[in-house]
Structure formats: structure tokens, C-alpha cells
Simulated assay, not measured.
Amino acid sequence: MFEWQKHSQDATNVPHFQDQLDFMHLRAQASETSSSENRKPSKDEWVGPPSSPSAIETKLGWIIAGATDTQNTEVMSRHTEATSDDILKRFWEVEEPPNQVDSVYWSKKKCMVVDHFQTQHSHSSIERFVIPLPRRVNASTIGEFRSQVIRRFVYIERLLSSKGLSGQFNDVIREYFDMGHAEPVLESDFKKSAYQVFYLPIQIVQRDSSTTTKIRVVFDTFAKSSTRVSLNDTLLVAPMVHSPLIDFLLRFRSHRVALTTDVRQMYRAIELTESDRDYHRFVWRSHPNEPI
């Protein structure tokens, strides 16, 4: 909204609203001499009872104009003011393409994550990335969480059974093992203390509109352990290295035909080191009668 008080004093400042200004002045004068019941409303006007204002649609939006016989003089007004310079500046800020990602603007910790990846990553025998977890220095210790994970799994197990979705859930988990994205914990590794392992609780995302898999499994890395520390609390946060959203939108408008694609199970294709896999444990069984 422009600063209307400044512009309305001189109609030449807003010539494209000249007709609306003239109409508003005439309407205000006419309402003082005639009641709304003696005049036929136009298609852009809502007329109220006699001696009451009318709602009028203009290029500026709907306005209220006319006389009133009410004795209540309290008026409440809500509006937003912006000068033409502010509007022009905002327009250029939106249209200006963003600067390229520059490591100069990254924090020290985010630079550590990038350096960690560049120096520590490797490739497996099937050409998958293998990356150690970027741990924080002097991070708090993760506590015991297996007992809570078991309780949450039993609850989800009963919930899915009541909805008839247990079979779909088991198919999703079995796919993890079939594709090599998960492996059973060795019996000897059960001897490790609670501070050497971490169990991730499972959450279920149900997508009824999906034409393939209606259930998606999500592991909650924000869950707090007995020491009120989650797995995410012990890890560094990486900087955003992909292009900003505005870049994608501009490229989308640049060509007549736009193509989109998706990388299937991208995050599951990144392997963890042997030592880090103990911090990504989860519990599962295919039937309630089986042990966890």
C-alpha cells in the first residue's frame, strides 16, 4: 500500500486511480443527501440499511464509504505503509540472482564438516560413499535408549496391526536387509555398553496417495537418550552446498519444457563405517510372537 495521505492530495500522482478517486468523493457526497433505499446499487457495490455506509469495490480493493448516524466515534484502522522506494527495492531483491556459495561465509564448524568429508570419505567395493560421522569435539555422552525404543516399536506394531498395515511395514524393513542397507547385529556386539551404541526409534509416515509404497519408515535421530542427548546433538551440521531454491525456479522458467527426476534411496546408498553402525541400531521383528 502506498502512502495514501501523501498521494491523495494530488490526484496527478496516481492518474490510473483518477476514476476511483472521483467516484469515492461523489459517493461520500451523495450519501449525505439521499438514503440507500432510494438508490439502485451497482454491480460493484453492496448497499446496507438506510443511513449506513456501503461497501464499494475499487481497483484498490473493497472500501467502506457513506454516512452513518451512529454515535460511536471509536474507529479502528489496520493498514500497512510502504513508500515506492521500499517497494522497488524489495522487487530488485527478489529478482536479483543469489551469490554463489562461498566458503568464506561458512562458520568454522561448517568448514570442519566439509574438510572432514574431503579427507575422510572413501568408496566401497560397489562404489558407494563411505563416510565417518562428523562428530563434535567434546560432545556430551549419549545415554541408554534401547528400552524406550522397544516400547515405541511395540506401540507402532500394534497400531499398524489394527490398520492392517503390518505386512507392508515388514516388506519395507525386509528391503533394507535385501539391499544391504541394514544387517543383523552380531551376538558378540550385544555385550557393548549402552554408551557405545545407540538405538534409533522408528516412525511411520503413511502416504495413502502413493501408488507404490504407502508406508515410509523414518528413523528419529532427534530422540533424547537417558542423558537428554540425541545422536544429532553429538554431530556437526554441514553447510548447504546445493543451489538455492530461487535458482531452480529461474531455470524452470527459462525453457519451454521442464524435466524432473529423483534419486531413489539416495541417503541409504551412503555407507557408515563399522564403528559408526553401532549408533544406528534399530529393533524389529516380523511377528508379535517373535522375540525382539
Results as ranks from 00 to 15, higher is better:
residue 6 K to S: 11
residue 6 K to Q: 11
residue 7 H to Y: 14
residue 7 H to M: 13
residue 7 H to W: 14
residue 9 Q to D: 07
residue 10 D to R: 09
residue 10 D to M: 03
residue 11 A to E: 07
residue 11 A to Q: 06
residue 11 A to T: 07
residue 13 N to R: 13
residue 14 V to Y: 08
residue 16 H to Q: 10
residue 16 H to N: 05
residue 20 Q to R: 01
residue 21 L to D: 00
residue 21 L to I: 12
residue 22 D to R: 13
residue 22 D to V: 02
residue 24 M to D: 00
residue 26 L to C: 02
residue 27 R to Y: 06
residue 28 A to H: 08
residue 30 A to F: 04
residue 31 S to A: 04
residue 32 E to S: 10
residue 33 T to Y: 07
residue 36 S to D: 05
residue 37 E to H: 13
residue 38 N to D: 12
residue 39 R to Q: 12
residue 41 P to N: 06
residue 43 K to W: 14
residue 43 K to Q: 12
residue 43 K to V: 15
residue 45 E to Q: 11
residue 46 W to V: 14
residue 48 G to T: 06
residue 48 G to M: 15
residue 49 P to H: 04
residue 50 P to A: 11
residue 51 S to P: 00
residue 52 S to W: 09
residue 54 S to F: 01
residue 54 S to Y: 00
residue 54 S to K: 02
residue 57 E to L: 15
residue 57 E to D: 07
residue 59 K to D: 13
residue 60 L to M: 15
residue 61 G to V: 03
residue 62 W to M: 11
residue 62 W to S: 05
residue 62 W to D: 03
residue 62 W to N: 05
residue 63 I to P: 00
residue 63 I to N: 01
residue 66 G to R: 04
residue 66 G to P: 02
residue 67 A to P: 01
residue 67 A to S: 08
residue 68 T to I: 03
residue 68 T to G: 04
residue 69 D to E: 08
residue 70 T to R: 05
residue 70 T to V: 07
residue 71 Q to H: 10
residue 72 N to E: 14
residue 72 N to F: 09
residue 72 N to W: 07
residue 73 T to S: 13
residue 73 T to N: 11
residue 73 T to P: 06
residue 73 T to K: 14
